[in-house]
Design a protein around this nucleic acid. Structure first.
Lengths: 229, 229
DNA sequence: TATATTTGCGTATCCAATACGCATACTAAT
DNA sequence: ATTAGTATGCGTATTGGATACGCAAATATA
Protein backbone atom coordinates (compact mmCIF):
# COMPACT_ATOMS: atom_id res chain seq x y z
CA UNK A 1 0.00 0.00 0.00
CA UNK A 2 1.20 3.46 -0.95
CA UNK A 3 2.34 5.80 1.78
CA UNK A 4 1.12 9.33 1.25
CA UNK A 5 0.85 12.27 3.64
CA UNK A 6 -1.60 14.48 1.79
CA UNK A 7 -5.02 15.40 3.12
CA UNK A 8 -8.13 16.01 1.02
CA UNK A 9 -10.53 18.78 1.88
CA UNK A 10 -13.54 20.31 0.22
CA UNK A 11 -14.56 23.96 0.18
CA UNK A 12 -17.81 25.55 -0.91
CA UNK A 13 -18.17 28.99 -2.43
CA UNK A 14 -21.82 29.81 -1.88
CA UNK A 15 -23.31 32.80 -3.66
CA UNK A 16 -26.48 34.59 -2.70
CA UNK A 17 -28.07 37.60 -4.33
CA UNK A 18 -30.10 40.24 -2.59
CA UNK A 19 -30.71 43.97 -2.92
CA UNK A 20 -28.74 44.23 -6.13
CA UNK A 21 -25.70 42.78 -4.42
CA UNK A 22 -23.83 39.55 -4.92
CA UNK A 23 -22.82 37.95 -1.64
CA UNK A 24 -20.60 35.08 -0.54
CA UNK A 25 -21.21 32.94 2.48
CA UNK A 26 -18.34 32.90 4.97
CA UNK A 27 -17.97 31.28 8.36
CA UNK A 28 -15.95 31.91 11.45
CA UNK A 29 -15.41 28.66 13.29
CA UNK A 30 -16.00 28.58 17.02
CA UNK A 31 -13.15 26.19 17.80
CA UNK A 32 -9.99 24.93 16.15
CA UNK A 33 -7.25 26.45 14.06
CA UNK A 34 -9.54 28.77 12.17
CA UNK A 35 -10.99 30.41 15.27
CA UNK A 36 -11.58 34.12 14.71
CA UNK A 37 -10.73 33.87 11.03
CA UNK A 38 -13.29 34.20 8.23
CA UNK A 39 -13.16 31.32 5.77
CA UNK A 40 -15.16 29.39 3.21
CA UNK A 41 -17.42 26.59 4.35
CA UNK A 42 -15.41 23.42 4.13
CA UNK A 43 -13.46 20.71 5.84
CA UNK A 44 -11.74 17.38 5.46
CA UNK A 45 -13.32 14.55 3.56
CA UNK A 46 -14.10 11.51 5.65
CA UNK A 47 -12.94 8.01 4.82
CA UNK A 48 -15.45 6.34 2.50
CA UNK A 49 -17.22 9.61 1.86
CA UNK A 50 -17.75 10.96 -1.66
CA UNK A 51 -16.52 14.46 -2.45
CA UNK A 52 -19.91 15.99 -3.13
CA UNK A 53 -21.36 14.24 -0.09
CA UNK A 54 -18.65 15.88 1.97
CA UNK A 55 -19.58 19.33 0.69
CA UNK A 56 -23.27 18.79 1.33
CA UNK A 57 -22.46 17.62 4.85
CA UNK A 58 -20.25 20.60 5.62
CA UNK A 59 -22.86 23.01 4.32
CA UNK A 60 -25.37 21.51 6.69
CA UNK A 61 -23.03 21.32 9.67
CA UNK A 62 -21.42 24.72 9.38
CA UNK A 63 -24.14 26.87 7.85
CA UNK A 64 -27.31 24.83 8.20
CA UNK A 65 -28.32 25.09 4.55
CA UNK A 66 -29.16 23.12 1.44
CA UNK A 67 -28.11 24.81 -1.77
CA UNK A 68 -30.02 25.13 -5.06
CA UNK A 69 -27.11 24.60 -7.37
CA UNK A 70 -23.84 22.80 -6.76
CA UNK A 71 -21.01 21.94 -9.09
CA UNK A 72 -17.34 21.23 -8.82
CA UNK A 73 -15.23 24.30 -9.52
CA UNK A 74 -11.54 23.48 -9.35
CA UNK A 75 -9.09 21.49 -7.27
CA UNK A 76 -6.41 23.52 -5.57
CA UNK A 77 -3.21 21.65 -5.03
CA UNK A 78 -0.34 23.19 -6.95
CA UNK A 79 0.94 25.06 -3.94
CA UNK A 80 1.89 22.44 -1.38
CA UNK A 81 2.07 25.13 1.33
CA UNK A 82 -1.38 26.64 0.78
CA UNK A 83 -2.20 25.32 4.22
CA UNK A 84 0.86 26.10 6.36
CA UNK A 85 0.22 23.17 8.70
CA UNK A 86 0.55 20.35 6.17
CA UNK A 87 -0.03 19.36 2.56
CA UNK A 88 -3.73 19.79 1.77
CA UNK A 89 -5.44 19.42 -1.58
CA UNK A 90 -8.82 21.11 -1.67
CA UNK A 91 -11.64 20.39 -4.07
CA UNK A 92 -13.65 23.59 -4.36
CA UNK A 93 -17.37 23.57 -5.14
CA UNK A 94 -19.42 26.36 -6.57
CA UNK A 95 -22.90 26.80 -5.08
CA UNK A 96 -25.92 29.05 -5.44
CA UNK A 97 -28.84 29.66 -3.12
CA UNK A 98 -32.05 31.43 -3.89
CA UNK A 99 -33.35 34.47 -2.14
CA UNK A 100 -35.42 32.63 0.46
CA UNK A 101 -32.42 30.61 1.65
CA UNK A 102 -30.40 33.79 1.62
CA UNK A 103 -32.58 35.36 4.25
CA UNK A 104 -32.50 32.29 6.50
CA UNK A 105 -28.80 31.72 7.19
CA UNK A 106 -28.14 31.26 10.89
CA UNK A 107 -25.24 30.42 13.13
CA UNK A 108 -24.78 26.75 13.91
CA UNK A 109 -23.10 24.89 16.71
CA UNK A 110 -19.92 24.77 14.69
CA UNK A 111 -19.61 28.23 13.29
CA UNK A 112 -20.82 31.77 12.90
CA UNK A 113 -22.11 32.14 9.32
CA UNK A 114 -22.57 35.43 7.50
CA UNK A 115 -23.06 36.88 4.03
CA UNK A 116 -20.48 39.32 2.70
CA UNK A 117 -20.83 41.43 -0.44
CA UNK A 118 -18.22 40.24 -2.92
CA UNK A 119 -16.75 43.71 -3.21
CA UNK A 120 -16.35 44.07 0.51
CA UNK A 121 -14.78 40.89 1.82
CA UNK A 122 -12.93 40.58 5.13
CA UNK A 123 -9.47 39.05 5.41
CA UNK A 124 -9.69 35.39 4.58
CA UNK A 125 -7.92 32.20 5.60
CA UNK A 126 -5.39 30.45 3.32
CA UNK A 127 -5.91 31.08 -0.40
CA UNK A 128 -9.66 31.52 0.01
CA UNK A 129 -9.60 35.00 -1.48
CA UNK A 130 -8.12 33.62 -4.72
CA UNK A 131 -10.67 30.82 -4.74
CA UNK A 132 -13.51 33.31 -4.46
CA UNK A 133 -12.06 35.41 -7.27
CA UNK A 134 -12.01 32.38 -9.52
CA UNK A 135 -15.59 31.55 -8.56
CA UNK A 136 -16.80 34.99 -9.47
CA UNK A 137 -15.29 34.61 -12.91
CA UNK A 138 -16.95 31.23 -13.22
CA UNK A 139 -20.27 32.70 -12.18
CA UNK A 140 -19.93 35.51 -14.69
CA UNK A 141 -19.20 33.21 -17.57
CA UNK A 142 -21.79 30.61 -16.56
CA UNK A 143 -24.45 33.29 -16.47
CA UNK A 144 -23.99 33.69 -20.22
CA UNK A 145 -24.48 30.11 -21.26
CA UNK A 146 -26.54 28.47 -18.51
CA UNK A 147 -29.75 29.69 -16.89
CA UNK A 148 -28.28 29.71 -13.38
CA UNK A 149 -29.32 33.27 -12.67
CA UNK A 150 -32.75 31.93 -11.74
CA UNK A 151 -31.22 29.91 -8.90
CA UNK A 152 -30.27 33.18 -7.24
CA UNK A 153 -33.77 34.63 -7.32
CA UNK A 154 -37.01 33.63 -5.64
CA UNK A 155 -39.32 31.16 -7.34
CA UNK A 156 -41.20 34.08 -8.83
CA UNK A 157 -39.44 37.27 -9.65
CA UNK A 158 -39.74 40.53 -11.49
CA UNK A 159 -38.13 41.10 -14.83
CA UNK A 160 -36.33 44.05 -13.37
CA UNK A 161 -34.80 41.78 -10.74
CA UNK A 162 -33.49 39.36 -13.34
CA UNK A 163 -32.22 42.25 -15.36
CA UNK A 164 -30.43 43.84 -12.40
CA UNK A 165 -28.90 40.51 -11.49
CA UNK A 166 -27.29 40.28 -14.91
CA UNK A 167 -26.20 43.90 -14.80
CA UNK A 168 -24.59 43.78 -11.39
CA UNK A 169 -22.88 40.41 -11.70
CA UNK A 170 -21.58 41.02 -15.21
CA UNK A 171 -20.91 44.68 -14.46
CA UNK A 172 -22.45 45.71 -17.75
CA UNK A 173 -25.20 47.99 -18.96
CA UNK A 174 -27.88 46.21 -20.89
CA UNK A 175 -30.91 47.42 -22.79
CA UNK A 176 -33.90 46.59 -20.66
CA UNK A 177 -36.25 46.15 -23.61
CA UNK A 178 -34.00 43.94 -25.70
CA UNK A 179 -33.16 41.84 -22.66
CA UNK A 180 -36.83 41.25 -21.96
CA UNK A 181 -37.55 40.44 -25.58
CA UNK A 182 -34.73 37.93 -25.74
CA UNK A 183 -35.54 36.16 -22.47
CA UNK A 184 -39.26 35.93 -23.22
CA UNK A 185 -38.41 34.58 -26.65
CA UNK A 186 -36.69 31.58 -25.05
CA UNK A 187 -40.09 30.33 -24.00
CA UNK A 188 -39.22 28.98 -20.55
CA UNK A 189 -39.77 32.19 -18.61
CA UNK A 190 -43.48 32.54 -18.08
CA UNK A 191 -45.60 35.27 -16.62
CA UNK A 192 -47.82 34.46 -13.67
CA UNK A 193 -51.07 36.26 -12.94
CA UNK A 194 -49.65 37.74 -9.78
CA UNK A 195 -48.25 41.19 -9.33
CA UNK A 196 -45.45 42.36 -7.11
CA UNK A 197 -46.15 44.43 -4.03
CA UNK A 198 -46.44 47.99 -5.32
CA UNK A 199 -43.56 50.37 -5.18
CA UNK A 200 -43.56 53.27 -7.60
CA UNK A 201 -44.31 53.14 -11.28
CA UNK A 202 -46.42 50.74 -13.25
CA UNK A 203 -47.25 47.50 -11.40
CA UNK A 204 -45.02 44.62 -12.50
CA UNK A 205 -46.04 41.04 -13.20
CA UNK A 206 -44.21 38.22 -11.47
CA UNK A 207 -42.47 35.69 -13.70
CA UNK A 208 -41.42 32.08 -13.24
CA UNK A 209 -38.69 29.91 -14.65
CA UNK A 210 -40.30 26.78 -16.06
CA UNK A 211 -37.72 24.06 -15.43
CA UNK A 212 -39.65 21.39 -17.26
CA UNK A 213 -39.99 23.47 -20.40
CA UNK A 214 -36.32 24.38 -20.27
CA UNK A 215 -35.25 20.74 -20.06
CA UNK A 216 -37.50 19.86 -22.95
CA UNK A 217 -36.05 22.61 -25.12
CA UNK A 218 -32.51 21.50 -24.30
CA UNK A 219 -33.38 17.95 -25.30
CA UNK A 220 -34.52 19.32 -28.65
CA UNK A 221 -31.18 20.97 -29.19
CA UNK A 222 -31.78 24.39 -27.70
CA UNK A 223 -28.63 26.08 -26.45
CA UNK A 224 -29.00 28.78 -23.83
CA UNK A 225 -26.97 31.90 -24.44
CA UNK A 226 -27.22 35.49 -23.34
CA UNK A 227 -24.67 37.99 -24.50
CA UNK A 228 -24.06 41.68 -24.16
CA UNK A 229 -22.07 43.99 -26.35
CA UNK B 1 -3.51 15.96 13.15
CA UNK B 2 -6.36 14.55 11.10
CA UNK B 3 -6.42 10.85 10.29
CA UNK B 4 -7.54 10.15 6.75
CA UNK B 5 -7.13 7.08 4.57
CA UNK B 6 -7.70 8.56 1.13
CA UNK B 7 -5.05 8.62 -1.57
CA UNK B 8 -4.67 11.30 -4.21
CA UNK B 9 -3.80 10.41 -7.77
CA UNK B 10 -3.59 12.31 -11.03
CA UNK B 11 -4.56 11.09 -14.49
CA UNK B 12 -3.89 12.62 -17.86
CA UNK B 13 -6.12 12.37 -20.90
CA UNK B 14 -3.79 13.16 -23.78
CA UNK B 15 -5.28 13.80 -27.20
CA UNK B 16 -3.43 13.61 -30.49
CA UNK B 17 -4.77 14.18 -33.97
CA UNK B 18 -3.53 12.50 -37.11
CA UNK B 19 -5.01 11.27 -40.38
CA UNK B 20 -8.39 12.80 -39.67
CA UNK B 21 -8.63 10.83 -36.46
CA UNK B 22 -8.72 11.89 -32.84
CA UNK B 23 -6.59 9.64 -30.65
CA UNK B 24 -6.07 9.15 -26.92
CA UNK B 25 -2.82 8.06 -25.35
CA UNK B 26 -3.08 4.91 -23.26
CA UNK B 27 -0.48 2.89 -21.43
CA UNK B 28 -0.10 -0.68 -20.32
CA UNK B 29 2.11 -0.84 -17.28
CA UNK B 30 4.87 -3.41 -17.20
CA UNK B 31 4.61 -4.15 -13.48
CA UNK B 32 2.12 -3.66 -10.70
CA UNK B 33 -1.62 -3.95 -10.35
CA UNK B 34 -2.38 -2.58 -13.77
CA UNK B 35 -0.23 -5.08 -15.63
CA UNK B 36 -1.85 -6.10 -18.90
CA UNK B 37 -4.59 -3.53 -18.58
CA UNK B 38 -4.84 -0.42 -20.74
CA UNK B 39 -5.21 2.76 -18.70
CA UNK B 40 -4.67 6.50 -18.74
CA UNK B 41 -1.29 7.90 -17.90
CA UNK B 42 -1.29 8.66 -14.19
CA UNK B 43 -0.27 7.76 -10.71
CA UNK B 44 -0.16 8.83 -7.11
CA UNK B 45 0.90 12.30 -6.10
CA UNK B 46 4.05 12.43 -4.03
CA UNK B 47 4.32 14.19 -0.70
CA UNK B 48 5.22 17.83 -1.23
CA UNK B 49 4.50 17.61 -4.95
CA UNK B 50 2.04 19.92 -6.68
CA UNK B 51 -0.80 18.38 -8.68
CA UNK B 52 0.28 19.68 -12.06
CA UNK B 53 3.90 18.78 -11.31
CA UNK B 54 2.74 15.24 -10.66
CA UNK B 55 1.01 15.04 -14.04
CA UNK B 56 4.03 16.41 -15.88
CA UNK B 57 6.23 13.88 -14.10
CA UNK B 58 3.99 10.94 -14.91
CA UNK B 59 3.76 11.97 -18.56
CA UNK B 60 7.54 11.93 -18.74
CA UNK B 61 8.00 8.69 -16.81
CA UNK B 62 5.29 6.65 -18.44
CA UNK B 63 5.11 8.03 -21.97
CA UNK B 64 8.27 10.08 -22.37
CA UNK B 65 6.49 13.22 -23.58
CA UNK B 66 5.97 16.89 -22.91
CA UNK B 67 2.53 18.13 -23.89
CA UNK B 68 1.55 21.34 -25.69
CA UNK B 69 -1.54 22.10 -23.67
CA UNK B 70 -2.46 21.04 -20.17
CA UNK B 71 -5.36 22.00 -17.95
CA UNK B 72 -7.24 20.52 -15.07
CA UNK B 73 -10.39 18.71 -16.17
CA UNK B 74 -12.28 17.34 -13.20
CA UNK B 75 -11.69 15.60 -9.90
CA UNK B 76 -13.23 12.17 -9.62
CA UNK B 77 -14.11 11.20 -6.11
CA UNK B 78 -17.83 10.71 -5.70
CA UNK B 79 -17.59 6.96 -6.02
CA UNK B 80 -15.43 5.79 -3.13
CA UNK B 81 -15.02 2.39 -4.80
CA UNK B 82 -13.82 3.62 -8.19
CA UNK B 83 -10.54 1.93 -7.34
CA UNK B 84 -11.51 -1.42 -5.79
CA UNK B 85 -8.33 -1.59 -3.68
CA UNK B 86 -8.89 1.52 -1.59
CA UNK B 87 -10.36 5.01 -1.57
CA UNK B 88 -8.66 7.06 -4.30
CA UNK B 89 -9.52 10.55 -5.44
CA UNK B 90 -8.15 11.33 -8.86
CA UNK B 91 -7.55 14.74 -10.33
CA UNK B 92 -7.85 14.37 -14.10
CA UNK B 93 -5.94 16.59 -16.50
CA UNK B 94 -6.75 17.32 -20.11
CA UNK B 95 -3.77 17.48 -22.47
CA UNK B 96 -3.06 18.04 -26.15
CA UNK B 97 0.01 17.24 -28.21
CA UNK B 98 0.80 18.43 -31.70
CA UNK B 99 1.38 16.22 -34.66
CA UNK B 100 5.15 15.96 -34.29
CA UNK B 101 4.88 14.66 -30.72
CA UNK B 102 2.15 12.34 -31.90
CA UNK B 103 4.51 10.52 -34.22
CA UNK B 104 7.23 10.18 -31.57
CA UNK B 105 5.55 8.31 -28.74
CA UNK B 106 7.64 5.39 -27.58
CA UNK B 107 7.55 2.77 -24.85
CA UNK B 108 9.35 3.68 -21.67
CA UNK B 109 10.86 1.64 -18.88
CA UNK B 110 7.61 1.88 -17.00
CA UNK B 111 5.02 1.21 -19.63
CA UNK B 112 3.98 0.41 -23.14
CA UNK B 113 2.40 3.55 -24.62
CA UNK B 114 0.11 3.63 -27.63
CA UNK B 115 -2.41 5.86 -29.40
CA UNK B 116 -5.98 4.65 -29.78
CA UNK B 117 -8.66 6.24 -31.96
CA UNK B 118 -11.36 7.56 -29.65
CA UNK B 119 -14.03 5.55 -31.42
CA UNK B 120 -12.10 2.33 -31.06
CA UNK B 121 -10.88 2.09 -27.47
CA UNK B 122 -9.85 -1.12 -25.74
CA UNK B 123 -11.22 -2.14 -22.35
CA UNK B 124 -9.98 0.29 -19.77
CA UNK B 125 -9.05 0.20 -16.10
CA UNK B 126 -11.32 1.64 -13.40
CA UNK B 127 -13.61 4.46 -14.57
CA UNK B 128 -11.15 5.59 -17.24
CA UNK B 129 -13.67 5.13 -20.03
CA UNK B 130 -16.03 7.60 -18.36
CA UNK B 131 -13.17 10.02 -17.82
CA UNK B 132 -12.29 9.92 -21.51
CA UNK B 133 -15.90 10.47 -22.49
CA UNK B 134 -16.01 13.58 -20.35
CA UNK B 135 -12.74 14.78 -21.87
CA UNK B 136 -14.06 14.44 -25.37
CA UNK B 137 -17.02 16.61 -24.48
CA UNK B 138 -14.66 19.15 -22.96
CA UNK B 139 -12.51 19.10 -26.09
CA UNK B 140 -15.55 19.60 -28.28
CA UNK B 141 -16.81 22.57 -26.35
CA UNK B 142 -13.37 24.12 -25.88
CA UNK B 143 -12.80 23.97 -29.62
CA UNK B 144 -15.60 26.49 -30.03
CA UNK B 145 -14.34 29.15 -27.70
CA UNK B 146 -10.59 28.69 -27.45
CA UNK B 147 -8.05 28.25 -30.25
CA UNK B 148 -6.81 24.91 -28.96
CA UNK B 149 -7.26 23.15 -32.28
CA UNK B 150 -3.89 24.55 -33.31
CA UNK B 151 -2.20 22.63 -30.51
CA UNK B 152 -3.22 19.42 -32.23
CA UNK B 153 -1.67 20.33 -35.59
CA UNK B 154 1.91 20.90 -36.68
CA UNK B 155 3.44 24.36 -36.43
CA UNK B 156 2.43 24.97 -40.03
CA UNK B 157 -0.66 23.37 -41.44
CA UNK B 158 -3.07 23.41 -44.32
CA UNK B 159 -6.44 25.04 -44.08
CA UNK B 160 -8.00 21.76 -45.05
CA UNK B 161 -6.32 20.10 -42.09
CA UNK B 162 -7.71 22.67 -39.67
CA UNK B 163 -11.08 22.34 -41.29
CA UNK B 164 -11.07 18.55 -41.08
CA UNK B 165 -10.01 18.72 -37.47
CA UNK B 166 -13.08 20.77 -36.63
CA UNK B 167 -15.31 18.54 -38.71
CA UNK B 168 -14.15 15.26 -37.24
CA UNK B 169 -13.95 16.32 -33.60
CA UNK B 170 -17.25 18.19 -33.62
CA UNK B 171 -18.85 15.63 -35.93
CA UNK B 172 -20.37 18.36 -38.03
CA UNK B 173 -20.37 19.45 -41.64
CA UNK B 174 -19.06 22.92 -42.16
CA UNK B 175 -18.85 25.14 -45.22
CA UNK B 176 -15.20 25.19 -46.24
CA UNK B 177 -15.36 28.69 -47.71
CA UNK B 178 -17.11 30.35 -44.81
CA UNK B 179 -14.84 28.62 -42.33
CA UNK B 180 -11.77 29.91 -44.15
CA UNK B 181 -13.20 33.41 -44.35
CA UNK B 182 -14.02 33.49 -40.65
CA UNK B 183 -10.68 32.12 -39.47
CA UNK B 184 -8.64 34.42 -41.71
CA UNK B 185 -10.73 37.33 -40.50
CA UNK B 186 -9.51 36.72 -36.94
CA UNK B 187 -6.10 37.96 -38.01
CA UNK B 188 -3.93 35.53 -36.07
CA UNK B 189 -3.78 32.79 -38.68
CA UNK B 190 -1.21 33.82 -41.24
CA UNK B 191 -0.17 32.33 -44.52
CA UNK B 192 3.47 31.39 -45.01
CA UNK B 193 5.20 31.40 -48.38
CA UNK B 194 5.61 27.66 -48.28
CA UNK B 195 3.47 25.10 -49.99
CA UNK B 196 2.54 21.64 -48.88
CA UNK B 197 3.95 18.58 -50.64
CA UNK B 198 1.71 18.04 -53.63
CA UNK B 199 -1.09 15.58 -53.60
CA UNK B 200 -3.88 16.08 -56.10
CA UNK B 201 -5.63 19.33 -56.87
CA UNK B 202 -4.44 22.87 -56.58
CA UNK B 203 -1.32 23.32 -54.41
CA UNK B 204 -2.15 24.58 -50.91
CA UNK B 205 -0.32 27.22 -48.89
CA UNK B 206 0.84 26.40 -45.39
CA UNK B 207 -0.54 28.53 -42.56
CA UNK B 208 0.68 29.40 -39.09
CA UNK B 209 -0.99 30.31 -35.84
CA UNK B 210 0.54 33.55 -34.58
CA UNK B 211 0.47 33.20 -30.78
CA UNK B 212 1.77 36.67 -30.14
CA UNK B 213 -0.91 38.29 -32.28
CA UNK B 214 -3.58 36.19 -30.65
CA UNK B 215 -2.54 37.22 -27.15
CA UNK B 216 -2.50 40.85 -28.18
CA UNK B 217 -6.00 40.62 -29.62
CA UNK B 218 -7.28 38.96 -26.45
CA UNK B 219 -5.78 41.75 -24.36
CA UNK B 220 -7.73 44.21 -26.49
CA UNK B 221 -10.96 42.41 -25.69
CA UNK B 222 -11.16 39.96 -28.57
CA UNK B 223 -13.16 36.84 -27.76
CA UNK B 224 -12.47 33.72 -29.79
CA UNK B 225 -15.53 31.87 -30.99
CA UNK B 226 -16.25 29.48 -33.79
CA UNK B 227 -19.73 28.10 -34.23
CA UNK B 228 -21.51 25.87 -36.66
CA UNK B 229 -25.19 25.67 -37.41
C1' DT C 1 -53.98 67.76 -12.53
C1' DA C 2 -49.22 67.42 -13.40
C1' DT C 3 -44.89 64.89 -12.72
C1' DA C 4 -41.97 61.18 -11.89
C1' DT C 5 -41.21 56.39 -12.39
C1' DT C 6 -41.22 51.83 -13.94
C1' DT C 7 -43.34 48.53 -17.05
C1' DG C 8 -44.38 46.67 -21.44
C1' DC C 9 -44.55 46.55 -26.58
C1' DG C 10 -43.27 47.78 -31.20
C1' DT C 11 -40.31 49.10 -35.29
C1' DA C 12 -36.07 50.44 -37.95
C1' DT C 13 -31.35 49.33 -38.74
C1' DC C 14 -27.30 46.83 -39.15
C1' DC C 15 -23.94 43.32 -39.04
C1' DA C 16 -22.33 38.79 -39.00
C1' DA C 17 -23.48 34.12 -40.25
C1' DT C 18 -25.01 31.45 -44.05
C1' DA C 19 -25.60 29.79 -48.77
C1' DC C 20 -23.61 29.27 -52.89
C1' DG C 21 -21.18 30.39 -57.62
C1' DC C 22 -17.02 30.00 -59.89
C1' DA C 23 -12.23 30.72 -61.45
C1' DT C 24 -7.63 28.62 -60.43
C1' DA C 25 -3.90 25.28 -60.36
C1' DC C 26 -2.48 21.17 -60.13
C1' DT C 27 -2.57 15.45 -61.20
C1' DA C 28 -3.92 11.56 -63.75
C1' DA C 29 -5.97 9.20 -67.43
C1' DT C 30 -6.90 8.71 -72.40
C1' DA D 1 -2.75 17.37 -76.16
C1' DT D 2 -7.02 17.15 -74.36
C1' DT D 3 -10.12 16.00 -70.89
C1' DA D 4 -11.67 14.70 -66.46
C1' DG D 5 -11.01 14.93 -61.61
C1' DT D 6 -9.82 17.27 -57.37
C1' DA D 7 -8.81 20.53 -53.99
C1' DT D 8 -7.82 25.57 -53.34
C1' DG D 9 -8.99 30.30 -53.04
C1' DC D 10 -12.04 34.37 -53.62
C1' DG D 11 -16.34 36.77 -54.26
C1' DT D 12 -21.42 38.11 -53.75
C1' DA D 13 -26.40 37.74 -52.32
C1' DT D 14 -29.41 36.78 -48.56
C1' DT D 15 -31.12 36.63 -44.03
C1' DG D 16 -31.93 36.29 -39.26
C1' DG D 17 -30.77 37.86 -34.87
C1' DA D 18 -28.74 41.53 -32.17
C1' DT D 19 -28.94 46.38 -31.39
C1' DA D 20 -30.85 51.03 -31.00
C1' DC D 21 -34.55 53.45 -30.08
C1' DG D 22 -39.55 55.56 -29.62
C1' DC D 23 -43.47 55.57 -26.98
C1' DA D 24 -47.84 54.21 -24.64
C1' DA D 25 -49.57 52.25 -20.17
C1' DA D 26 -50.20 52.13 -15.21
C1' DT D 27 -49.20 53.31 -10.98
C1' DA D 28 -47.55 56.78 -6.77
C1' DT D 29 -46.86 61.34 -5.30
C1' DA D 30 -46.74 66.20 -5.10
Amino acid sequence: MIQQNIKIAVDAIVFGYSNNTLNVLLIKQKYGVLENQWALVGGFVKDNEGLQDAVVRELKEEAGIDVDYLEQLYTFGDDVKRDPRFHVVSVAYFALVNNSVFTLIADTDAADARWFPVNNLPDLAFDHKAIIDLSIKRLQSKLSYQPIGFDLLSASFLFSELENLYCTILEKEIDRRNFRKKVLNFGFVEETNKFAPQKSGRPAKLFKFNHKKYRKLVEDGFVFEIKFA
